[in-house]
Amino acid sequence: MSGQGKQKTCFVTVGATASFTDLIRAVLAPDFCKALESQEYTHLLVQYGQDGKELFDKCLQQSLEVGDLSSLQIGGFALDPSGLRQYMIQAKGQHTKPPAAEGLVISHAGSGTVLDALRVSIPLIVVPNSTLLDNHQVELAEALEEQEYVVHGQLKNLVGALKRAEQLRTRMKTWPPVNSGTHRQAKGLKGVMDEEMGEEELRIDLEVP
């Protein structure tokens, strides 16, 4: 096996404000942990939110009793006010010593977190929280999956999502998307702000291939 012995991290984030307990349960389920092991993951790190510690400890205990998890190390923390980007970079594994294998991020569908993972350019499974009332988060997950940026994961089939994430790894796209050469897209935020400041309209002629 190629990646044997290398560290490979799966980082899970449930978000800060709305507690997403179902995701904590799902990633600590024995069959999911087994699936992680079979994909050569060595570490599972869970950001479980303000009041998630009790549940995290309970699920972890259960998982350790049921499953024979010899090679997977599981850890967790509540929140980190300095942001989660550092954990994603760590899971990406590029700059760690010794070099680690590229891992994975599993995240709630909050736009800030999704954006962070896209910019770090690490495979991402987005799991919308279906208990939220105004569920536009599903729309974002669906739209991004359609464009092949993320895997839209369902709570009841995280193992399947994990397999699809490995396929996504082989054809990762970079963020931000390259604008497709349409003129109206060219001016960006700067163009709009210049126009609003009363400056002449920005005209950029892109070379359209």
């Binding site: 909050g110 977190t113 935020l189 700067k190 920005l202 950029i204």
Partner: peptide
């Protein structure tokens, strides 16, 4: 807060770091 701040900062970061000088926010 949260997502709104993240999106605003991300948008500005991208605008001031744009590779194409004509599109870069000064």
């Amino acid at each position: 807060s949260g997502g709104h701040t993240a999106e605003m900062i991300a948008m500005l970061e991208r605008a001031v770091n744009e590779k194409d000088e004509r599109l870069r926010l000064d």
